[in-house]
Amino acid sequence: MPKHAQRRTLLGAVAAAPWWWAAFVGTASAQSSTAGSDALDERVRAAVLVRGGLSLDIPVIVETGTSVPIVLFADPSQLRPGVRVTRLGIIAPKNPRPVALDMELGALMSQARIATNIRLGASQSVTGVALLSDGTVWQQSIAVVLTGSACYDGT
């Protein structure tokens, strides 16, 4: 195989599943010990990431990263009938621990909406992730500019 073809396949694979995806799915299988590495690989490969109906509400300029309000909301009108949101997560790529938040939603929630405050270590593009029960993944990113980090507390 010529070298450029190999590179193209590699780039294709990267485009299909972003770098943080394995870490995000991995947190699930690490806790439910039944899922083996084969199952994990399969889920990483099978993931189709689209913008979908996920909205991420976070200020674009933040004074301090110690407490940044964020709202994750999956628009129910974008869901096909019988499909529900099973997990909501936040990826902050430049935080020391990039998987910032991962929440499993029960059937009791009337809307797939979570409001909370997170810490940010640097200016970065914050990504929200929603996993649907049919295997689809919605993602949405917003670039956040930070003037003070949560990691270095004046020391």
Partner: peptide
């Protein structure tokens, strides 16, 4: 709610000090 799952936090790495979590219920 009445021992039925509303949500479960798997990873809460980046929540701020004194975390707050708000969810919608019917």
């Amino acid at each position: 709610f009445n021992d039925e799952l509303v949500f479960r936090g798997r990873v809460l790495n980046a929540l701020s000090a004194n975390p707050s979590l708000s969810v919608q219920l019917t």
